[in-house]
Design a protein around this nucleic acid. Structure first.
Length: 466
RNA sequence: GGCCCGUUCGUCUAUCGGUUAGGACAUCUGGUUUUCAACCAGGCAAGAGGGGUUCGACUCCCCUACGGGCUGCCA
């Protein structure tokens, strides 16, 4: 293998980027990046009815969010239709393809008849060996002159050696009667012209590979390395569909999963490298290989996704975390953070990032930094603000005046107050949480006090003790 | 219908003829704790079924079952 590695992702722009497509793209990206190769993008927009520019934009957004950068400009398959037709005619000239004048009606009738007999037969064009002199002046398609005997062997890096009997394959149409290429022809021509060395795609294309390989052979082109990966299934083991909930990559962004965690999870879904579970993208790029890909479809497991994302959120640097959090809020349609909120978050992220699995959770746990006075205690927190505890808070505030605002100083003060009131620190912490955050579950009370500062702490305690 | 692919704990997986079948998530128990999360210790839990091959099969072969894919002038 002396050729530099070139992989590609070739989505149809008929909707958003599917989570399964995102993983396919990720595998291609990892493989190329790990080998100093190129990762190309091709938009398969030859179906003019269903392709839209909005879908293309959505797919690009999804890839960008996942952090999968591609080399060069995305290629439009539709724009290359003349080249596809050219190749079809070259096949004609090489006699590896022929003109077929059978109409769609004739073919449909043939199939209907076979079905009526309860059998199934491949359509065999009567024009395969017809004398050109007998060709009518009518529309025709260009069909591949496929071998009818022997076998085609797909040497697949994931599926192994797959043998397809040529007798089970018909003479596929390469160029339609309107002169446009079929998918089968277009992929091969594009992959060849783009210099694609490794085709890593869903195993729904495994059978297609045999047909495509015939085209490579017909043109005398070098066959790429095949790697057909299993599709992702829903938690119930069925093919992933809308009823499973989120299927679009962008939905995952809106659900608050960090891209790095998403990459990690998706990489591990159907691929393994020993016991490696939590790893950075750089590590994934170094470890990733085709031999680690499993052959069975993997199910999406949101619990594990969350766990993985939790690790990544706590691993992230504050600046990167704040940056991605901001992008997430915009994507999720949440109001943007004010400068003051950003400032406070920047100081206090350390108090929440180890306890959040998603950005939604992070925001929720960061409530004490994002809210402002007067703090409204929720139902659970309000219970700990009875008359007794209010009195204690009231007695506490003067002792917080004129002291150094460090944990070393604050800790003995709070411990003293707890002891003076004959309670453990835990008992005192409850009303403090209620006063400082309005919640009963919060980060450490010391951390909260340090993050919001002396004045704000005293103000909140005063508010609560009223 | 035909052809192709797949099947290890609930889930993701390791194992590439010889292991007490390992790890992670989830779950359960105990510990720690300033609530939550985290963390620590421990537990439960797997080779779809049936035939072969072999001294020995999760691993190789065949059959069955189940799941998936392809079988378009869709991609």
């Amino acid at each position: 293998m002396s050729r530099p590695v070139v992989t590609r992702f070739a989505p149809s722009p008929t909707g958003y980027l599917h989570i399964g497509g995102g993983r396919t793209a990720l595998f291609n990206w990892l493989y190329a990046r790990g080998r100093g190769g190129k990762f190309l993008l091709r938009i398969e927009d030859t179906d003019r009815e269903r392709s839209t520019p909005e879908a293309t934009a959505a797919i690009l957004r999804g890839l960008t969010w996942l952090g999968l950068d591609w080399d060069g400009e995305p290629i439009s398959q539709f724009a290359r239709k003349d080249r596809h037709a050219e190749v079809a005619h070259q096949m004609l000239a090489r006699n590896t393809a022929y003109k077929c004048f059978s109409t769609q009606e004739e073919i449909a009738a043939f199939r209907a008849e076979a079905e009526a007999r309860g059998s199934y037969a491949l359509f065999q064009s009567p024009w395969r060996d017809a004398d050109p002199a007998t060709h009518p002046d009518a529309p025709y398609v260009i069909r591949m002159r496929a071998p009818r005997t022997g076998e085609t062997v797909i040497d697949d890096q994931v599926q192994g050696r797959v043998v397809i009997q040529n007798s089970s394959l018909d003479d596929m149409i390469c160029l339609r009667s309107d002169g446009t290429p079929t998918y089968m022809l277009a992929v091969v021509v594009d992959d060849h012209d783009m210099g694609v060395t490794h085709v890593i795609r869903g195993d729904d294309h495994l059978n297609n590979a045999a047909r495509q390989q015939m085209i490579y052979d017909a043109m005398g082109w070098e066959i790429p390395v095949w790697a057909h990966i299993p599709l992702i299934h829903g938690p119930d083991g069925k093919k992933l569909s809308k009823r499973h909930g989120a299927t679009g990559v962008e939905e995952y962004q809106a659900m608050g999963y960090p891209a790095a965690g998403m990459r990690n999870y998706l990489t591990r879904l159907g691929w393994a490298h020993g016991d490696a579970e939590i790893f950075t993208t750089d590590e994934a790029v170094k470890m990733f290989d085709l031999s680690g890909i499993g052959r069975a479809p993997a199910r999406l497991d949101f619990k594990k996704l969350e766990n993985t994302c939790g690790h990544h959120i706590s691993m992230m640097g504050d600046a990167a975390l704040l940056h991605e959090l901001t992008a997430f809020m915009a994507a999720a349609g949440l109001p943007a953070l004010t400068e003051a909120q950003k400032h406070l978050l920047g100081r206090g992220l350390y108090t929440v990032k180890e306890r959040a699995k998603t950005f939604h959770e992070l925001l929720d746990k960061a409530h004490f930094m994002l809210t402002s006075r007067p703090i409204v205690a929720d139902e659970s927190a309000a219970k700990s603000l009875d008359t007794v505890s209010r009195g204690i808070l009231k007695s506490l505030t003067p002792r917080l005046q004129n002291v150094s605002w460090t944990k070393d100083v604050l800790e003995p003060i709070l411990n003293d107050v707890a002891a003076e009131n004959g309670m453990g620190f835990g008992k005192l912490a409850a009303p403090l949480r209620a006063a400082l955050a309005g919640r009963s579950a919060t980060p450490s009370v010391f951390d909260m006090m340090l993050v919001i500062g002396q004045d704000e702490t005293i103000a909140r305690l005063n508010d609560a003790s009223q």
